[in-house]
Amino acid sequence: MTDLLLLFTQQTINGIYLGCLYVLVALGLTLIYGVMNQINFAHADFVTVGAFAAFFVATRWATKWLGLPDTTGYLLSIVAALGAGALLGLVVNAAVFAPLRNRGDELRPLIATIGVSVLLENGQLALFGPIPFQFDSPFAQHTIRLGRIFFSQQSVLVVIVAALAIGGLYAFMKFTFLGKALRAVSQDRETAGLMGINENFLIALTIVIASALAGMAGALLGPVIVLTPFAGASVIVKAFAIVIIGGFGNMEGTIIAGILVGIIEAFTVQYLGSGVIDLVVFVLLLVMLVVRPTGLIAERREENV
């Protein structure tokens, strides 16, 4: 293999790993948008809450108190973060989304989620302080070698977990009755309601799934980002870009766009430096909006474009 090809392969692999992390965050946004036409600005903070939950489970509770090996601790912390995200989603839905939903307005829930975001960020600031936490994944130290290509066990774990989550979600949406009902609500809420589908339950379920994914993404992102109460913000703007590039509310588009952005980021770091990542991603976003405003995979959602 030539060096250039090697570099190309290596960066593509890094990009896919990054992309999987972004997809997990962006999927939640796109799910919520698809079902209730709503942007959740607090989504970033669900990621941070998940990351902190995972941090305390992995480094304190599981390893120090229960005496589990740190690898098991970390795997357990991913589950814990998933649960923390789901719980938070349940609470935020009951407190904010549900009361605001039937007022026929899209702006006020958006502001309400900004309020929730401020609350969560500063609540965590009061609890954990502004100093970044050192969250090391036990899998990050071990690398796997394949010919002349290296990748950490952590990246393999991330790809596997993301694939499982995405696969599970996909199967749920396509093959279960509940998933079918969810898609129906996403296509036309009123008609779905007339068919006897309990939309309130399904919307709550969507938010819980989306938040659980965000929390889980937090556990996986924790070792990558600078873990402070404001950590989610660095990921969320990219997640918004991904959701738009993929087509708002479109799962397949979001997955493809997420991986694509991950790969673009890996190559941007290689050739242009890490400082310009957001610049490249958002210029791409604006170009995308001009050229193909419906996203990578066009859906019949005429009203937004």
Partner: peptide
Amino acid sequence: AFAARLRGHYLGIASLGFAVIVYQVLIN
């Protein structure tokens, strides 16, 4: 020019993208 083509949340994110780009240009 974007507002002429986009509506609702799409315009929201596009304008958010604009703000991110300005911020990044200031940094870089």
